[in-house]
Computed example of a mutant assay.
Amino acid sequence: MTTLFLYLGAALAEIAGCFSFWAWLRLGKSVFWLIPGLLALAVFAYLLTRVEADFAGRAYAAYGGVYIATSLLWLWAVEGVRADRWDLAGATLCLLGAAIILWGPRAA
């Protein structure tokens, strides 16, 4: 359960950090939006290193599925756009893949 919370926190921090750049470059917001954005990206990197995994690449690969699903939540909560059935089907597949990568049985 801790892994899931770390991934969710990392995803929210990464999306918030990247969105600050989006807001600055695409939405015409102040350059000062980058300050909390850079802090959020640092939090993202820190949280991702707290995940219990033997290899960074595997932790990052599994994180990708959580990131995709969390991005769709951001789409709805922040941008006011509801995910359609194709978004939800894709996110479900990604989360299934993330679970297999992270918790699949490994040879000793």
Rank of each mutant, 00 (worst) to 15 (best):
F55E: 08
A83C: 08
S20D: 11
Y7C: 08
S71P: 06
K29N: 11
G80Y: 08
W24G: 00
W74F: 15
E14M: 13
W86M: 07
T49I: 01
A91L: 11
F32V: 09
A56G: 00
A61Q: 06
A16H: 12
R50L: 05
W22L: 14
A10E: 07
W86R: 15
G37Q: 04
Y60D: 01
T49N: 09
C94G: 14
A61E: 02
G80C: 13
V78L: 15
I68H: 09
A13N: 12
A10W: 07
R58D: 10
L95S: 03
V51D: 05
R82Y: 01
A108H: 13
L93R: 11
L41G: 02
R85D: 01
V31T: 12
L41Q: 00
R50W: 10
Y7I: 06
A56V: 11
I101R: 00
G80S: 12
T70N: 01
R58M: 09
E14C: 12
R82G: 03
G80Q: 12
A77C: 07
G17C: 12
L47A: 01
A107W: 07
A56D: 06
C18W: 12
A56M: 11
K29A: 15
A10N: 11
C18F: 12
P105Y: 07
L41M: 13
A99M: 13
L34V: 05
A10M: 05
A98H: 10
A83N: 06
L102H: 12
A42G: 10
S71W: 08
L75I: 03
L96H: 06
L12N: 02
L47Q: 08
A40T: 06
W86P: 00
I35P: 09
L6S: 03
D84Y: 02
R50Q: 12
W76Y: 15
E79H: 14
L38N: 04
A11I: 02
W76C: 14
V31W: 14
F5Q: 05
L47G: 03
I35C: 08
S20M: 14
A89W: 13
I101A: 05
L34A: 11
I101F: 03
V51F: 07
A45R: 07
M1S: 00
Y67C: 11
A61N: 14
A42W: 13
A16Y: 08
A83L: 06
L25Y: 14
A91M: 06
L96D: 01
W74K: 13
A53L: 01
G65C: 11
A53C: 05
L88V: 12
G80F: 12
V78D: 11
L27Q: 15
A69C: 13
A108F: 14
G104Q: 08
R26M: 15
V51M: 04
A91P: 03
A89T: 05
D87A: 10
L38E: 07
A89E: 00
L12H: 01
G104W: 13
L95Q: 04
A11T: 04
A56Q: 03
A59P: 04
A23I: 06
I15C: 10
L6F: 00
I68E: 08
D87L: 03
V81R: 15
R85G: 09
T49Q: 03
A10T: 04
S30H: 14
V51W: 02
G80L: 15
L39Y: 05
I68S: 12
L6Q: 08
Y63H: 09
F19K: 13
W33F: 12
A10G: 14
G64P: 02
L4F: 06
G104P: 07
L25V: 09
F44C: 04
I35K: 10
